[in-house]
């Protein structure tokens, strides 16, 4: 066990964990930030997606010892125009069904719109391909991302 300090959603948080603890479990078990979900544990499904320095990463496969000074953003801490546009589009389209994967879907969608203002269907497929949805809400995910892009002026 070691004391690890993480910068999460704009605040420093210290916790006692083994350095090889996946960031996901530091977030969920130690900090009670349970909006980030466990799906597969091997970075195949994207349910655990968070940002480190603005880049989407799979927190289930990232040991806390490797986060360093990276600024972590979880679904609880998203902000900015892309986040607002994605949230509004997700609500307007009623995207979620069971909802389990949706935190990760929304994180990846925000990251996509920060990188590409007006993604094509193909661009959406490439950016969102690592976020699986057993309910297959993909039709609405695609439509909501296009809506959010329009709202952002893309």
């Amino acid at each position: 066990m070691a004391t690890v300090t993480l910068r999460i959603n704009g605040a420093n948080r210290s916790l006692e964990v083994d350095g090889d603890t996946p960031l996901l479990w530091a977030l969920r078990d130690h900090l009670k930030l349970t909006g980030t979900k466990f799906g597969c544990g091997e970075a195949y499904c994207g349910a655990c997606t968070v940002f480190v320095d603005g880049n989407p990463v799979r927190s289930c496969s990232l040991p806390v010892s490797q986060v360093g000074n990276g600024a972590i953003t979880t679904i609880e801490g998203i902000s900015g125009p892309e986040a607002a546009a994605v949230q509004q589009a997700w609500i307007a389209r009623d995207v979620p069904q069971c909802g389990y994967c949706q935190s990760g879907q929304i994180m990846s969608a925000i990251a996509l719109l920060k990188a590409i203002r007006k993604p094509t269907d193909r661009g959406i497929d490439l950016a969102m391909g690592g976020n699986l949805c057993r309910c297959a809400t993909y039709v609405r995910i695609r439509a909501a991302i296009h809506d959010a892009a329009r709202a952002l002026g893309g």
């Binding site: 091997e42 195949y44 499904c45 297959a136 993909y138």
Partner: peptide
């Protein structure tokens, strides 16, 4: 896991 038992992906 999903590498050997894939789900449909968005593409």
């Amino acid at each position: 896991n999903f590498d050997s038992y894939p789900l449909l992906a968005i593409d």
